[in-house]
């Protein structure tokens, strides 16, 4: 283990970790938005919306995220979408994780006891009121943990943005493996940073989950 080298390169890795954090935050926001919209569409009364959402989920979960990133970044200019690698990576990964989150959110909503909906409707609440006041508050508690699993998978997934040259953790590790020929050190350095990020996010989600349970 070459500790002197590790100390020398670690500032680059810290900076790269910050980029991974930024990518993760933006991707998570976009993913949650797509997931919420997707779930709403999947549970919609309009058949067209249900169909569109089902196709969205099937296509984005049925093909590799890396290919989706490549289509947007390299193929985008051909159809008039010119994006820098950071935006292309974030958007492609966010829409991709949104497909997984669609199913997570939909599952949580469907897991709310049907009797709750029936009772609320019998009491004269509208469909929308029932959803907003009865179903969603209960579903929200149930989706925190599975969405947390989606998010920690997504944080590791941000490594897929490395091949389009966004200088995040995996890209930095790859570059330093190439220049120093020290794969184990570089792996450990970036691996530890990934695990710290995932650990902190995981703790935050557990906290949120515990709070949601108490109230």
């Amino acid at each position: 283990m070459d500790t002197e080298l590790i100390l020398r390169v670690s500032p680059f890795f810290i900076e790269a970790a910050w980029m991974t954090i930024k990518l993760s935050i933006l991707t998570a926001i976009l993913g949650l938005t797509c997931g919420a919209l997707g779930a709403a569409a999947r549970l919609s009364r309009l058949a067209v919306l249900r169909w569109i959402a089902a196709i969205y989920v099937s296509v984005f979960r049925g093909t590799p995220a890396l290919i989706q990133i490549f289509i947007l970044y390299f193929g985008g200019p051909q159809i008039g979408i010119q994006l820098d690698s950071f935006s292309a990576g974030t958007i492609a990964l966010g829409v991709n994780i949104g497909a997984y989150m669609t199913e997570t959110i939909r599952g949580a909503i469907l897991s709310v006891d049907k009797g709750q909906t029936e009772a609320a409707r019998t009491l004269g609440m509208s469909r929308w009121e029932t959803m907003r006041k009865v179903v969603l508050p209960q579903a929200a508690r149930m989706m925190i943990r599975p969405l947390g699993v989606n998010i920690s998978a997504m944080i590791k997934g941000t490594a897929l943005i490395a091949p389009i040259s966004v200088v995040e953790l995996t890209y930095t590790a790859q570059r330093f493996i190439g220049s120093t020929y020290k794969p184990f050190e570089m792996f450990l350095l970036s691996g530890i940073l990934y695990m710290i990020i995932i650990y902190v996010v995981g703790q935050g989600i557990s906290l949120l989950d515990r709070r949601a349970r108490i109230t």
Partner: peptide, 17 residues
């Protein structure tokens, strides 16, 4: 705890090392 892509680099270049 780490991305697959990183592990592929480790295995490929690590084994060469």
């Amino acid at each position: 705890g780490t991305p697959l892509l990183l592990q592929l680099f480790l295995i490929y270049f690590g084994l060469i090392e």
